[in-house]
Design a protein around this nucleic acid. Structure first.
Lengths: 353, 353
DNA sequence: CTGAAAGCGCTAACAT
DNA sequence: ATGTTAGCGCTTTCAG
């Protein structure tokens, strides 16, 4: 388009391309490309000229051109319910770090807690060329499933493990973890146990935990007491749910919060109601967030290493893409961290209501 | 890998392109492109044929081809110190949501708390075609600055506001906010005030807060007591820093934590040392995280709406890119939320050490 | 209103 | 070992 560049170093306003480097180095664009990507296939002398020209022009590869040519974007999409959340951000963090190591880049989409319409959030990432999708929770959107299957876009479901999942998943068994947590309570002598759960539609984690709870309660011949909270709004909802629980069933001696965050305000609320913690109310949470051990009393919780889940998933996806390793489900173990918030029930507790 | 693909519509394994749509609709690729992007320039009849063909083939635009042609990626890069953090993830969340509204996609890079070598984290995003960069904190990397200036890549610095910043910034004045927080303490009667700070190199937020603190202490003719903690590791470091403070200066009656998270374990530690809160030790934090009001006592903190900062920054960047609106610095206000953790000093407090 | 053709930046045959 | 060239998917002149 323009003529010869007279001035020697000639910083260009436009970004430098292989053509610019080639011209400056006095070679062809193919050599530039080779020299940059497979240096060993180019004679050292030329290689040096190319490197110098590239440096002088401040050349860096244009990933878009490369992506178009290679049909590889080096972009991985991650879908999480929410970015601003201790657990999800930890998971996302693990994914991102794995990607960076492999020179991939992550794009994150926030989809809320209901996985039934994932397609809406996945499509923009697929359009942008995401080579694989890492999805928090089970994939409950048939459209997305079909779409990705047809287009050969690998899908990895993370955090929740399910035996019969439609896509490989790396995570743990929410049902079993909940059962274990309940068994702990039962061993301590609790029978009147309540659960504070999140909304279930489209959310396999809550579904699994709730059905585990209901099954256990039936075994105990005890009426389940479940109060749902809206995920989107945080901590204080635990307190409100707890008040509803107490109203429904004042005999409750233990509460399982499906998110640690709720335990936070449940504790505050207990004190406001004149209960002494932990003796008058045992409380347990889920996910074992960083601050949970600093609550007063320190919170018993199901520890799931979000970072580890994210990291392993990222690596699995990349090795699948790069080395053709099949994506396989991995069932991770959870561990119940027993802290001071769960003790035997106080049978002489002042009556609530 | 599987068998039957008998069905007429001829689903292609390969993703459908404009060519496929054009063929099926019996028009040229130019018409397909026009019909999809500027429907009003195409005769309704053809438009309909194109739409149907596109739907049948499951066509969606390939952003990479589009980006290469348009020299616009619709990708914005965000650099934050850490993803797994209540504040940063809130900021990132605000950015992401703004981007999604404008049909952009965000890529996030995690750069740690030291902004002196940002280039390393910015380059991968620039290569991927990021059209603009939103950076948490002041940009303290000359290389990046020059680079982006030369290449016309817009830079926006967020969270911290600085009068003389090299790039536009949307944020608040950390120096002033700290001074206000200190004035609150002073009004309550505190003189022996300590600060728990993060590492300062490359971190303008900590630098501003520390120098504000030092200036105020000098005004009070009081020796500053600052204990640094390593950002990377969280909550429990507050406790350790507090112990060091008490050892250095047992007369301390108030502590300012530059991160709310540290206040968390400072409280725990105070109780362990036999102090009654809030009377024996006033504690204040920074950022007013969601859980801060649920601490016991509820934490006084500098409230900075991370989400708002992120969102406004995202919008500003997009309007700059789309509508050519100049990026301008915005100084946001902070508000000190006074809660129960800050009270007048107890002069009869049991001596510590 | 529609189509043909060029070209964004890159890499990989293929030819030398 | 190096150069020439085609083409990834898209949009946009420019003709018709």
């Amino acid at each position: 388009m323009t003529e010869e560049q007279t001035v020697p170093p000639q910083k260009l306003r436009r970004k430098a391309t292989v053509h610019d480097v080639a011209r400056l180095a006095g070679v062809s664009i193919a050599t530039v490309s080779r020299s940059l990507n497979k240096p060993e296939t180019v004679r050292p002398g030329l290689r040096k000229r190319v490197d110098m020209a590239a440096a002088e022009l401040g050349y860096y590869t244009n990933s878009i051109g490369k992506a178009l040519r290679n049909q590889r974007s080096r972009l991985i999409g991650t879908i999480i319910p929410k970015l601003f959340d201790p657990l999800f951000s930890l998971v996302a963090s693990g994914v991102q770090e794995a990607l960076v190591e492999y020179d991939y880049l992550g794009i994150i989409q926030v989809a809320g807690y209901d996985n039934r319409d994932l397609m809406k959030h996945a499509l923009p990432m697929i359009e942008k060329g995401a080579e694989g999708l890492i999805i928090f929770g089970q994939v409950q959107d048939k459209v997305l499933l079909d779409y990705c299957r047809q287009r050969d876009i690998p899908l990895l479901s993370i955090y929740s493990f399910a035996e019969d999942a439609p896509v490989p998943c790396i995570g743990f068994d929410n049902y079993q973890a909940t059962t274990e947590l309940l068994n702990l309570m039962i061993q301590l002598g609790h029978v009147e146990i309540a659960m504070i759960s999140g909304r279930q539609p489209g959310n396999d984690r809550q579904q699994a935990r709730v059905s585990s709870y209901i099954a256990t309660m039936e075994r105990l011949r005890c009426e389940p007491v479940i109060e749902e909270v809206d995920h989107e709004f945080g901590i204080q909802d635990g307190a409100a749910a707890f008040r509803r629980i107490i109203k429904r069933r004042p005999e409750i001696t233990a509460v399982i919060c499906n998110r640690d965050a709720h335990a936070f305000s449940v504790m505050t609320e207990c004190r406001r109601l004149g209960l002494t913690l932990p003796h008058d109310m045992s409380i347990a949470g889920f996910d074992d967030l960083a601050y949970s051990s600093f609550l007063d009393p320190p919170l018993t919780s199901v520890s799931v290493s979000g970072y580890e889940i994210g990291r392993r998933s990222g690596i699995a996806m990349l090795r699948h893409l790069e080395e053709g390793m099949p994506l396989r489900s991995i069932r991770l173990e959870t561990r119940i961290v027993v802290r001071g918030s769960t003790v035997r029930p106080n049978l002489n507790r002042p009556l609530l209501d």
